[in-house]
Every structure is written in C-alpha cells, then in structure tokens.
Design a protein around this nucleic acid. Structure first.
Lengths: 216, 216
DNA sequence: ATAATTTTTTAGACCTGTCTAAAAAATTTA
DNA sequence: TAAATTTTTTAGACAGGTCTAAAAAATTAT
C-alpha cells in the first residue's frame, strides 16, 4: 500500500495532467500547498516506485500503474461525495473536505459494496464522472455556457470551479446539475449573459458562464 | 486535532482501563503491537497534552479530556461497523479492520448524520454499546454463559472475544446477538455446556461459554 | 548571446513516531 | 532482605515527510 502523502501526490498529478500533458514541480507544490523542495523529494520516491515518469527539470507524467492508483482514489472520493449528498443529505458545497479523508479508506470490497448500495452512480454531485473499479469512465464532453450564442441551450452537467463559494452561488440561482438553460441575451458591454432556467430568468457574469458547463 | 497515533493510544488505554484501573506501559505496547520504549515516548506527549495522568513507572489513566476523545473514536468505530453490517451487508466478523480506518474520519457533523441515517442504533453488530455524541451510554451489564447453571437461560447480548475466528464459529452455530439460549446440561468432565438455541441443541466448550455473554 | 529571472534541485535541518541497547526502578523469589 | 527477574525509562538512531537557504539549470528579456 502507499502512504497518504503518496496518494495525494498521485491524485494531484492526475488532475493537473488533464490540463497539461506534463506537470511541473511548482504546479504540484501549489496544488498541495507545499514547497517545491518537498515535491522534488517526493517525486524521486514515486519515480523509484515506478508510479511516475520523472526526469530532472522535465516535469512528470503518471505511469499506467500510477494512473490506476490515482483513478482508484478519485473513484473513492466521488462515491463518498455521492453518498454524503444522496444518503446523508449534505449539500454539494459541503462534501469535498470530508471526501478528502474518506478517499483514503483502503478496502476495495467496501467501495464496491458502497457503489452497489447506491446503484452504481455514474457522476458525483458536481457532475464529475465516477470511474468503475477498473478505472474506466466515459468522459462526457462538456463546454462552458460562455461558449453559447443567443438562443442556444443545454443541460447543466458540470462545473469548472468546485469552490464552496461558487457552488453556493449556483445553488441560490437554481443553476444546478440537470437543469435546462437557454441563453436569451448576451450583454455586449461586459459579455454577461441572461439565461432562462425553467420558469425564471437569471443574469450571470462572464466569469460564472466560463465555469458552468453543459453537455455537448 | 490529534494525530492518528495519539487517537489509537487513547482508544487502547480506554479499552484496557475497563479491566484494570491503571494501565501499564507493557499492556499498551502489546495492544498496539509496538515496543515499550515507543509507548513511554508517546505517554509523555499525551501527558503534556493533559489527556492522560502519567507518573513514571506508575502506569496511566485517562483524564476526562482523554476519555472524551476515546469515547468519540469508539462511537465512530461502532457506528461505522453498524453501517457496514446493516447497510452494506458485511458479516459481523468482517468489519473490524475497515472500522479501524473509518473511526479516524474527523467530521462530527458526518457522524451525527450517519447516526440519524441509521436511526440512532444503541449497539454495534457485536452487541457493544454505541456512545452518544456526548460520550454517554448505559453499560448493559452482561455475564458469560459459563456463569449459568442448568435450566437457566438468557439472551445473547455480547461477546468477550471479537476475533473473526470466534465470530465465524458463533455464526455457524447460530449463536448470534438476540438469540435466546437455555442451558440444558453441563458436562462435569470438561465443564462444557449443552445449550438449547431456538429449535436446535448445541454443545459448546467452557472456553466458548466464557466468551459469549448474556444480559443480566 | 548575454544578462536577468524563474524554476528546480541539493544540502542540511527538524518533527513525529518508531526502533534497539542499555540503564534504572520495581517486583518477585529465595 | 538480598538476589534475580521483570518492567519501565533513557539514550541514540532511523525513516517519512516537511522546511529554509543556497546552488544549478532552464527560460525569458534585452
């Protein structure tokens, strides 16, 4: 088994790899709120274990073994988030920190039974896909509402910003996963957008429109 | 918050305190599969935090603050065990190791909601009482079946040995929590006992009779 | 293409929790 | 009650993971 620190490094590297093929020491340090020197030390250990490909000064990528571990942790994180929201009635902005701890519970049998108990959910409360026990998931293609033109519409299916503040704002505006939205107008001055959400009309900033995703 | 090691020490000291008022360094070392020297080091740290009363060579007791933490961890352990058995259909001999990890999840709100989700269970799958959020529980008085005479009876309400091997044996003999048993005979030669359990008759050794508990 | 800046690595240190070996205290035995 | 044994503590070391300060490499700017 791997240590808690190793698991967190692998998970961070996986997430950062979605934006950049290769991940830098500083990116990891920022993601984990640690220092570059500490990251270098850990990268050597992960490379020794053949969980990452690491060449001095060249950044890192996950090996297949490292990616498998990362996806297993992400599976656990998202299943526990789903559990917290669907079974214990937490709000979608409250569950991240708890799941950060729960994702390190090691039993594979436990997580498979939890998955079954909840009827094999495909997405967590924020719309992120839940990998199956082999690490497979179909990455639903999403695009920001900001990319829509007037009169175009879509189903809210994910968020780019997972911060409690953003999630609470969306909740208050009824902009939650599964809702159908249509763009009724775009204000030229600041590129803010007027949306039709079910029976109500909402005005969102460009910033929000960039971080709120719909299925393609 | 306390470290994982600190939590495990406090929990062990609590459990050992049920048998002896004062707990020795060696007892703790044995319970945690560690060495006496390591225990001494940790006892100093726990004493500095005023979680235990510690005088060199005199053994330790928990302070009220230490006991509160220990009971909170035990509450979490037993609630998670109940969850694993009642919701995820694990057997009572399979849940201890998983709960050992889950008991360290820190959120108090989580555990209160879990408690509510399961309708505030009073005992875990082995019959041990679940403390409430303030650490209170009524310790049901139990006695071993070995203390019964012929023709006396009782309801199985707990076990003294929590090992998977013992629990599996009990399961196979239908000697599970809640079952009513009556002593029909005691074999003088080895003090083994013949029990009536619902419609069947079972023969148990003295050893088993000492570790299987009924409500007084 | 050289200088300035940024990023990354190395070196050395510290903290937590563990260990072994040896010393000190307590307990048991004779 | 003195000797033998057991228990506990101290001393010193080590591994994991982190840090700061300084050196080395890479990148950017002039």
């Amino acid at each position: 088994m791997n240590t808690l620190a190793e698991e967190n490094y692998l998970k961070s590297i996986y997430h950062l790899s979605l934006n950049d093929v290769t991940v830098s020491t500083n990116q990891i340090a920022a993601a984990l709120s640690t220092k570059a020197a500490s990251v270098t030390d850990m990268l050597k250990k992960l490379a020794d274990k053949e969980l990452i490909n690491y060449e001095k000064y060249q950044g890192v990528t996950l090996t297949p073994a490292g990616e498998k571990i990362a996806l297993h942790i992400i599976r656990k994180h998202r299943l526990w988030e789903y559990f917290l929201v669907e079974k214990l009635n937490f709000k979608w902005d409250e569950v991240h920190e708890m799941a950060e701890e729960m994702e390190h519970i090691s039993s594979v049998e436990l997580i498979d039974r939890l998955d079954k108990f909840m009827d094999h959910p495909k997405h967590d409360p924020h719309g992120d896909p839940i990998p199956d026990r082999d690490g497979n998931f179909k990455k639903h293609e999403l695009k920001p509402i900001a990319s829509l033109n007037v009169n175009e519409s879509g189903i809210i299916s994910g968020v780019r910003d997972h911060s409690p503040a953003f999630l609470q704002y969306l909740e208050k505006q009824q902009l939650t996963i599964g809702k159908k939205i249509a763009v009724t107008d775009i204000i030229e001055y600041d590129n803010s957008m007027i949306l039709q959400v079910e029976n109500t009309t909402t005005h969102i900033s460009r910033e929000v429109a960039k971080n709120l995703l719909i299925a393609i």
